[in-house]
Every structure is written in C-alpha cells, then in structure tokens.
Design a protein around this nucleic acid. Structure first.
Ligand SMILES: [Zn+2]
Ligand SMILES: [Zn+2]
Ligand SMILES: [Zn+2]
Ligand SMILES: [Zn+2]
Lengths: 161, 161
DNA sequence: GTGAGGCCGTTATGTTATAACGCATTGCTA
DNA sequence: TAGCAATGCGTTATAACATAACGGCCTCAC
C-alpha cells in the first residue's frame, strides 16, 4: 500500500518539481506536447494539494493573460487528465494534480477529500475495490472511482487549531 | 457480500413494489411524507435500473402534469436521497433508485455502471474501501463513493447482440 | 382561529461543460 | 519550395446541471 500523499508535511518544492519533471519526461517519451499553457495549468494545480474547479483554474490563467474562455481551461484539463497528470474528482466537479506521477499512466487511484480544508490525498488503489462484487455480477470493470470525504488529520477535533 | 442487483434477470415487478413498500414503511416510521410527487418520482426511477438525470426525471414528471420547473425535480430528488431511497451517481450527475431498500438508511454502496446499456447495479459496500489507506493517513472517513464503469454481462462481447 | 412549518409553484440566476468555427504554427511531402 | 494534414488555441454560442429566494396553500398543534 502506498503513502497517501497530501496531508503529511513534506517537501512540497520537491513534490512539485518532480511532478513537473515526470510530466516533461512522459510527454517527451510519448510525443505529447506540454505547451506553455498546459504546463502552467499543471503548475497551478500542483501549487496545493487541493482540487480546483475548471473555472477557478481559468481565472488563474486569465490573470496571467493565458486565456479567459472556458474551452481554454477544459482543453488543458482534458490533455492533462488524458496524460494522467491530473485527476478529476467527481464529487467536487474539480481537478487535482496527480500525487503519484511515478505510478504509470492510468493507474487506479483513491482519493481522501478533507471537507474542512479541501486538501485531497491520493492513494494508489491497493486492489480494485469492488473486484469481488464485479466478479459476482459478471461485470467487467474498466475503471473505478473511489472518493472518500471526511476529515484530514489536521482538521480533526483535537488537533491544533 | 451481497448480490449486486441490477443486471441479472429478476422479478422486477416485485423489485419495484417491495422498494415502494419499503419507502412507505420508512416514511411512516420516520414521520416523513411520501407525497404523490415524491412517490411518483421514486416510481419513475424504479422503472429501470438506470440512472436518470434530474432533467430527464423532470421531463417525465412534466409529461404527467406534476411540475416542470427544475426545483420540482431537485426537491423530490433531495428528499429521496436524504431518505436513502435514491442514490446519486457522481460520475453521471444522475440518480438511481436504491436497489437495497432492506439495507438501512445511509448504507454504504458501490455501483457498477454499464457504459453500454446504462444500467447500474448496486452492491452493498462489503467493507469500507480505503480503510487501510485512511488509517495510514490518519484520515477520518465520513462517507465514500465507489463507482465502477465497465460492461455488464449482457453487453460484453460474446453475449447475444 | 391562529401561527408554525412543510410542500410546492415560480422567477431568476449560478455553475459546470461542450459544440463548432476559424486562424496560426508545425512538420511533412511532393 | 509549395502544398497539405495535424495540432493547438482564440472565440462565440449554447447545453447541461443545480440552487437561491419569494410567495401561496395546506395541515396540524395549540
Ligand atoms: Zn506536495
Ligand atoms: Zn483538512
Ligand atoms: Zn428490478
Ligand atoms: Zn450493459
């Protein structure tokens, strides 16, 4: 099982730069183009371990003169999610940078979403959840979404305010 | 582990009527009011094991003269989901009738969503998924969404077209 | 009967997402 | 080098999903 990165204090500088490096490398290898706009969108998402709505991202991009119409944000997000650099959080209609760039493309992930501070931790799916139920039903799982809402360690009663 | 109702052939008449009866009973017990509008909304959702968008439901209601403005549908859906008679499918922005009315209010559920025919099977969450990861992170899970997309038995290559 | 609360009709608006057209750049190919 | 296909992005418009807020009506407790 993996460390669900996101809540525990860590060297976030390294976290960001290794994610960017991984994205560069993956693009180079796949012949995908990490354009300035896409790269900047990824950087913005990497700034925090929080999920950002498409329009929040767009606002940030617009502030930097990088485009201010919805399709600009959605196209960047589509590219980044297709490449596996960003995940969509269905419960929030929002997008979070992948916290496990070292895991492959299309890795299964599970998310822990703090309802208080909004941070999102990403755990690599230890095993396909539902596997037993799916087998029982003869259902062929193609991809699964696992999203838990709750309180992160810092936001639980008893932790320092 | 429970039978993930929804794909396997079954006595759907009984399926519908037992769900309605369970809803009636639960409302009676809790002092909640299953008004004609709410009841009809639930019936419509029960007709198929598919998820319906709020506006699809609204269209159905409107056709019967039961209201044609978005809040009508959303209020009914809110009531039904609060009572546990209906679940929201986050990935689809849609709503499906609970297939396990016998399970308690607020039971944890996992969904198998067929991308071809649109049917949704509901499995009672065998065990809190993520439990291990959440413990590892010191995260207190309040509720979890588990939604798998794939192909149901009838829609898999090899089954009768 | 009166007041409180629940339910619903309605208007208006907010939020999230996509379709579709056109232009510019890139990189190939004839 | 000229032509051409593919990709990225600017832009307009619209679709799809969801809620805020007000007012009327009914029911039930007091
Ligand atoms: Zn970090
Ligand atoms: Zn928190
Ligand atoms: Zn049924
Ligand atoms: Zn199917």
């Amino acid at each position: 099982m993996s460390d669900p990165t996101g809540f525990a204090p860590h060297d976030h500088r390294a976290c960001v730069s290794s994610a960017l490096a991984a994205a560069e490398a993956a693009c180079a290898e796949r012949g995908a183009r990490l354009t300035p706009l896409r790269r900047r969108a990824l950087e913005i998402l990497l700034e925090s371990h929080k999920a950002l709505g498409a329009y929040d991202l767009l606002e940030r991009l617009a502030a930097e003169g990088l485009g201010d119409k919805p399709p600009v944000a959605y196209r960047a997000l589509n590219f980044l999610t297709e490449q596996g650099f960003v995940h969509r959080i269905e419960r929030l209609n929002a997008y979070v940078a992948c916290a496990h760039p070292e895991a492959g493309e299309g890795h299964g992930a599970a998310f822990l979403i703090c309802r208080d501070c909004g941070r999102v931790a990403e755990a690599l799916a230890s095993e396909a959840p539902l596997a037993a139920d799916a087998r029982g039903a003869g259902f062929a799982v193609e991809d699964a979404v696992v999203e838990a809402r709750g309180l992160c360690p810092q936001c639980q009663p008893g932790s320092r305010p």
